[in-house]
Amino acid sequence: MAQDITKAKSYPEQVGDITFDPKTDRADFKLCDGDIYQYYGTGTTYKGGTKALKQYLLKHYQYKPAYKNITGYVTVRFVVNCRAQTDRFRVLQIDEHYQKTTFNAGFISHLTKLCQSLNNWVAGGTDQRKANTYYYLNFKMLRGRIKEITP
């Protein structure tokens, strides 16, 4: 049965908030003072822009025959702290009809590790004060191949 967000019993302080989970998140990942903003409000980016980010991901993505039935979208959402380090990775998966699904676990692990290995982030904010921000990478998948990466 499809989840209806308009009938939710509660909402996070802000849509998309990621709270610390000791089971999955690094205890040594530190946020700087202040809130966690959205990437588009602070200008958080990757060295060389989206083009460099995509080139890296496409170069290191390794297709396997076990992925051949994977068609849909995978969003990997995470935090870039003010020191341009990343953690708190969360994964959302939907099929080509925008319904929730669960793809091959090895594929999701591979994609998540790829995102975790990106290490040329440029923290947003001002020169005087860099900010913590949320960022996401959305992978459009067709039969196990990456067709598009946004934003």
Partner: peptide, 11 residues
Amino acid sequence: KQGDFYNWKQL
């Protein structure tokens, strides 16, 4: 904007 395309599409 936060990449939750399931809930965006439902609405």
